[in-house]
C-alpha cells in the first residue's frame, strides 16, 4: 500500500488544481460526450422526420401566403393573408369548420363514454375477457377504406342492415347518407363503432392499475356497484380519459379517408364536409394549392390546440 506521501505524478493539490483546461481537452470531451456519440442514432431519424414534418409544415405555411394555383410554379413575391381571408369569408369553409368541430367533440365524447362502459363491463369478471376484448377492438385494425365500404352497405337505403331494422319496426326506409341532416350523425356512429374499442383498451389498462382492495373496501362499506364506480373508480381514470381523448381526436382529424372512401370522390356526402376533405378537394381537384394550404394550416392549428395543452400537461407531470 503506497502512502500518500509518495511523489505526486502531476500537480493537483490545493489551489493550483484550477488548471486551465485547454480547448483541445474540451473538444475531446465534447466529441466523446454522449450527445455527440449518440447523435447518429437519433440524428438520422430526426433529420428525416424533421424535414418531412417540420419542413413540410413550414413550406405549407409559406405556400398558403402565396396565390399558387394550377400548373404554374408558385411565386413567392407577394406574400399575404389573402387565402385566409377568402377561407374565413367562405360559407363552405365555415360549414366545414362547424362540421369538423361537431365531429371532433361528439365522436370523442361518445367513444369515451361507450369505451368506459365497455371497460367496466369487461372488468367485471367476464369469462373469455381477452377474446371479447379482441373482438371489440377488431374494427380498429381495419383501414378506414374498408370500414367505409362496410358502413356504406350498412347504411344502404334499399337493403342495408339499418334499413332492415328500421322497416322491421314499421318505419319507412331512411337514406342515412343522402340526408344532409343525418349524414354527419351516421358518419359519427360508424367512427364510434370503429374506435370505441380503443377507448375501452385505455380504460381497461387504467382500471387494472387501480388496486382491487379499493373495490373491496367500498364493498365492505356497503356501497353499491354503480356508486363504487361513479364515486371511487371513475375519478381515478382522469389520466386515461385525457390520453384516450387526445388520441381519439387525432383519429377524428384523420376522418378524411373514411369520408372519401365512402363515395370514392372528393365531395363527401352532403352535410359531412370537414376541413380535411375541403382542403384536399380545393388543392387536388381544383388545383387551388395556396387555398388548400391555408385550410391545412388552420386544420393544423386546430390539431395543435388539442395537443399542445395535453403535451404541456404531460411535461409538467414529468411523464414525457
Amino acid at each position: 500500500m503506497a502512502t500518500r506521501d509518495t511523489t505526486e505524478p502531476t500537480n493537483q493539490s490545493g489551489v493550483s488544481t484550477d488548471e486551465v483546461v485547454d480547448w483541445k481537452t474540451k473538444l475531446r470531451y465534447f466529441l466523446n460526450s454522449d450527445f455527440v456519440r449518440s447523435s447518429p442514432y437519433w440524428g438520422i431519424p430526426f433529420i428525416l422526420m424533421g424535414i418531412a414534418v417540420y419542413g413540410g409544415i413550414g413550406y405549407n405555411i409559406v405556400i398558403s401566403f402565396t396565390d399558387y394555383s394550377g400548373l404554374q410554379p408558385p411565386s413567392f413575391s407577394g406574400l399575404d393573408l389573402e387565402m385566409y381571408r377568402t377561407a374565413l369569408a367562405s360559407g363552405a369553409f365555415r360549414e366545414a369548420a362547424v362540421n369538423n368541430f361537431v365531429l371532433l367533440v361528439s365522436f370523442t365524447v361518445i367513444s369515451l363514454i361507450l369505451g368506459l362502459f365497455l371497460a367496466i363491463l369487461l372488468d367485471h369478471g367476464i369469462r373469455y375477457k381477452n377474446k371479447v376484448q379482441t373482438i371489440y377492438l377488431l374494427p380498429m385494425a381495419l383501414s378506414f377504406v374498408v370500414t367505409a365500404q362496410l358502413w356504406l352497405w350498412m347504411f344502404n337505403p334499399d337493403s342495408g342492415v339499418l334499413t332492415v331494422i328500421v322497416t322491421t319496426f314499421g318505419f319507412d326506409p331512411i337514406d342515412w347518407l343522402g340526408n344532409p341532416r343525418l349524414a354527419l350523425p351516421a358518419v359519427i356512429f360508424a367512427l364510434v363503432w370503429q374506435f370505441s374499442g380503443y377507448a375501452m383498451v385505455v380504460y381497461l389498462a387504467g382500471l387494472q392499475s387501480i388496486p382491487d382492495d379499493q373495490f373491496e373496501a367500498a364493498k365492505v362499506d356497503g356501497a353499491s356497484t354503480i356508486r363504487t364506480y361513479l364515486r371511487i373508480i371513475v375519478p381515478q381514470l382522469k389520466e386515461s380519459s385525457v390520453s384516450a381523448a387526445v388520441v381519439l381526436m387525432v383519429f377524428a382529424l384523420k376522418a378524411f379517408t373514411f369520408l372519401y372512401s365512402l363515395v370514392g370522390q372528393y365531395r363527401p356526402p352532403n352535410g359531412t364536409d370537414i376541413l380535411a376533405t375541403l382542403m384536399v378537394r380545393q388543392a387536388f381537384k381544383f388545383g387551388k394549392w395556396a387555398y388548400g394550404a391555408a385550410i391545412a394550416t388552420m386544420l393544423l392549428l386546430l390539431a395543435l390546440s388539442v395537443i399542445a395543452p395535453y403535451l404541456a400537461y404531460q411535461y409538467r407531470q414529468g411523464s414525457l
Binding site: 430526426f46 422526420m49 418531412a52 414534418v53 419542413g55 413540410g56 409544415i57 413550406y59 405549407n60 405556400i63 387526445v246 387525432v250 382529424l253 384523420k254 378524411f256 376541413l275 380535411a276 382542403m279 384536399v280 388543392a283 387536388f284 394549392w289 388548400g292 394550404a293 385550410i295 391545412a296 394550416t297 386544420l299 393544423l300 390539431a303 395543435l304 388539442v306 395537443i307 403535451l311 414525457l320
Partner: peptide, 15 residues
C-alpha cells in the same frame, strides 16, 4: 418527435 405523431397529414400534403 411527439408533436409529429399528432400532425394531421393534410398540413404537409401540398408540399
Amino acid at each position: 418527435f411527439l408533436v409529429g405523431v399528432f400532425v394531421p397529414y393534410q398540413a404537409v400534403l401540398v408540399p
